[in-house]
Simulated scan of single mutants.
Amino acid sequence: MSDCPNVTETKQNRVLTEMDWKEKWKTRQIGFHVKDVHPLFEEFLNEMISGKEKLNIFFPLCGKAVDMKWLADMGHNIVGADVCELGLKEFFEEQNIPYVEESVTEIPGAKVYKSTSGNISLYCCNIYDISDSVIGQFDGIWDRGALVAVNPCERERSVIVIIINVI
């Protein structure tokens, strides 16, 4: 924590590493995952969409958020990113969405899981390796809790990475 002098590590503000995050998924410590669309997202969706169709929406640290299918079913294009492959695969399996797995040549070791319908692409990689040249630009972002999972010292960097990918 010495790199982050103004942040005190507490039980509520634990600095998670990529390995911690993968371990949480492996041991099923995923209390952050909810089985329903977030009520605030439902309430304010019209403000984000503003009557537009086929928006490109980004989900940082997406896991297996059901909100992605909800929006995809409305005709929007979804791109998510997460370091844990398990959550991404579970998303497609639990939502009964056929998908394919491909390597991402621009990001060594990264994979993308794409719905066969083509409107959902979930990248398995570190969010800092993502760029608009790989995933495009977006009309909106839905972050239900990704920012709090990011190391507090990296939050500004995380926001910058996300913002440069929004139109």
Rank of each mutant, 00 (worst) to 15 (best):
V83T: 06
I107W: 09
P5S: 11
K26Y: 12
E90S: 08
E93T: 15
S115Y: 01
K111F: 04
V66T: 14
I30Y: 02
S121D: 12
F138L: 04
I49F: 09
N56T: 14
K114D: 03
G109Q: 08
A146L: 00
N119F: 02
K26P: 07
V79N: 03
G75W: 11
R14V: 12
K69D: 07
L40W: 13
V166H: 14
M19F: 10
P98K: 02
G118I: 11
R14G: 01
I167C: 12
T116W: 06
D36P: 10
Y123F: 09
D20L: 01
S50I: 12
N96C: 14
I78C: 01
Q95R: 13
D67H: 02
S117M: 08
S103F: 13
E42M: 14
P5A: 11
V34Y: 14
I57L: 09
V7R: 12
D139G: 05
K22F: 15
V134P: 03
C62G: 01
E156W: 09
K69G: 04
L61Y: 00
C153W: 03
K52T: 11
G140W: 05
H38Q: 07
Q29L: 09
R14D: 00
L71E: 05
G145Q: 01
E154P: 00
F59A: 02
K54L: 10
K64Y: 08
K52L: 10
G75C: 10
T10A: 03
S121M: 10
A72I: 11
F32Y: 03
L122R: 10
C124N: 04
G109F: 06
L40F: 14
K69W: 14
W70R: 08
I107V: 10
F91Y: 10
S121K: 15
D36L: 15
E156A: 04
M19D: 08
N13L: 07
I97R: 03
N126D: 06
C4M: 08
R144M: 06
M74Q: 07
E43Y: 09
Y128H: 12
N96H: 09
V112Q: 02
F44P: 07
A146Y: 00
F59C: 02
Q12I: 15
Y128Q: 10
M68K: 13
S2W: 14
I107H: 05
I57R: 13
G145S: 05
E18W: 09
S117C: 05
Q29K: 08
N119Q: 03
M74A: 13
L147V: 09
N6Q: 12
N46T: 14
H76A: 02
H33M: 04
K89V: 13
T10L: 08
D36V: 12
P39I: 15
M74G: 06
C84Q: 09
F41D: 10
Q137G: 04
K24Q: 04
A110Y: 05
N119R: 02
D143N: 03
V104F: 04
V79G: 02
V7C: 12
E18A: 09
C4D: 03
N151P: 03
A149F: 00
K26E: 15
